[in-house]
């Protein structure tokens, strides 16, 4: 049984390290998949699933639960590693990722995978769905919150801003977006491909409560999650500054590892680094 509401940051760090190892192992086994953007959001999802969110892996339809949507669906390996650790399915299933007949599709498929609520993968659509769930929760007078993880490159999609307007217009204060601002997309630095800054000012102008943090610092993540929950009358976004490929020196800040899985040699070195820490 997994432990919920973990307050001990050392414990969260230990979980994050195990999640990183699982991501690398499953991607290596699959031979393809998105390494960089999975590693950049490990602390964010670890904090959500092990410290913050109300959820029950044994009762998927529990009405009192909080909801999570991986709008940047290509970080599916991260979400799968988290869900397995929480007990939504067995750990060994992780190594079926992307294989024919597996419940773990290349991008999240809610029809197949326990713990996944909506289908994502085509970018820019998760926030709209989060709004829909938030509206339903409000109608049903349920207190659950809806968390949605966006990529930074992803906000180049126009639908994100349509949804940003909707959430503000309907005052969906039960929506909390988290933006994994790792500054890289497939073609290179976001700033060079198509600049999205000033990010905080944009979201503020769209009527959102904005909080900026270091997305690898558990203390900051948890404080931000608790703080934005108190803001009423508007949705909140936590802009989390992160490092793509975080935790493995030769993956960090490399656009190349957006969509490439570790080779056997890379895996060996990476696991060693994770154990000993980057020198």
């Amino acid at each position: 049984m997994f432990e919920q509401g973990v307050k001990d940051i050392q414990k969260l760090k230990k979980i994050a390290k195990e999640i990183r190892k699982d991501i690398l192992l499953m991607l290596n086994k699959a031979g393809s998949g998105h390494t960089g953007g999975s590693l950049s959001a490990v602390e964010l999802l670890t904090a959500l699933f092990f410290a913050k969110m109300k959820h029950d892996p044994k009762n998927l339809t529990w009405k009192g639960r909080d909801h999570f949507i991986l709008s940047k669906g290509h970080a599916a390996p991260l979400l799968y590693a988290i869900l397995a650790k929480c007990g939504y399915f067995k750990h060994e299933e992780l190594f079926e990722l992307r294989q024919l007949g597996s419940r773990l599709q290349g991008h999240p498929d809610c029809k197949l995978t326990p713990g996944i609520e909506v289908p994502t993968g085509s970018l820019g659509q998760g926030l709209s769905m989060a709004n829909g769930i938030a509206m339903a929760l409000r109608l049903d007078e349920l207190s659950g919150r809806v968390y949605v993880l966006l990529g930074d490159g992803e906000v180049q999609e126009g639908q994100v801003w349509e949804a940003a307007m909707t959430a503000a217009h309907y005052k969906l204060d039960n929506v909390c977006a988290i933006l994994d601002n790792n500054r890289l997309q497939i073609d290179g630095w976001v700033e060079e491909v198509k600049n999205i800054e000033p990010l905080a000012a944009k979201w503020e102008a769209f009527g959102w409560n904005v909080k900026e943090i270091n997305g690898h610092d558990f203390r900051q993540i948890l404080e931000a999650l608790n703080e934005v929950e108190l803001v009423k009358g508007k949705p909140s976004i936590i802009i989390a500054h992160t490092v793509k490929g975080k935790g493995v020196s030769f993956f960090e800040n490399k656009a190349k590892y957006h969509g490439v899985a570790p080779t056997n040699d890379e895996l060996e070195l990476a696991l060693k680094e994770l154990e000993e820490g980057i020198k």
């Binding site: 809610c110 909506v118 709209s128 769905m129 709004n131 829909g132 769930i133 339903a136 049903d140 349509e162």
Partner: peptide
């Protein structure tokens, strides 16, 4: 586009 996504979310929530 946002309308269809929002509708999907509402449906996902029952």
């Amino acid at each position: 586009q946002d309308m269809m996504g929002t509708a999907a979310g509402l449906a996902a929530a029952g």
